[in-house]
């Protein structure tokens, strides 16, 4: 198989696993995992597209550095909210959060 196709196949698989996790998991931490999987699928894609292009591009590597940093920032704030939820409810099951009806 040509390298780009295998990279893209892996990244598409990661995306699919991430979306499956988002749709089925109840724990907020697992949801965060799934989001990170999608981020990393995208990062893998960008790096592969940049490296395997002829001639190779640098912009992709820069984009990935931004993406990793921003995903970490988002995860940090998200974990803080999840921690707060655990302190308030002793539970982080999203399906049990039904105080706001909807």
């Amino acid at each position: 198989m040509e390298p780009l196709a295998s990279f893209f196949g892996l990244s598409a698989t990661l995306l699919a696993i991430g979306i499956y996790g988002l749709a089925t998991k109840r724990s907020a931490i697992r949801i965060l995992f799934s989001v990170e999987l999608i981020y990393n699928a995208a990062n893998l894609n960008i790096v592969a597209f940049a490296r395997l292009r002829n001639p190779p591009l640098v912009t992709g590597q820069v984009l990935v550095i931004f993406s990793i940093a921003l995903a970490a920032m988002e995860a940090a704030v998200g974990l803080a909210i999840i921690l707060l939820a655990f302190r308030l409810n002793s539970d982080i099951d999203l399906r049990k959060m039904t105080r706001l009806k909807g």
Partner: peptide, 15 residues
């Protein structure tokens, strides 16, 4: 967070 992640994936495809 899901929307941001999907946005990066879309950007990766366009790129």
């Amino acid at each position: 967070a899901m929307s941001s992640a999907l946005l990066v994936y879309a950007i990766s495809l366009i790129y």
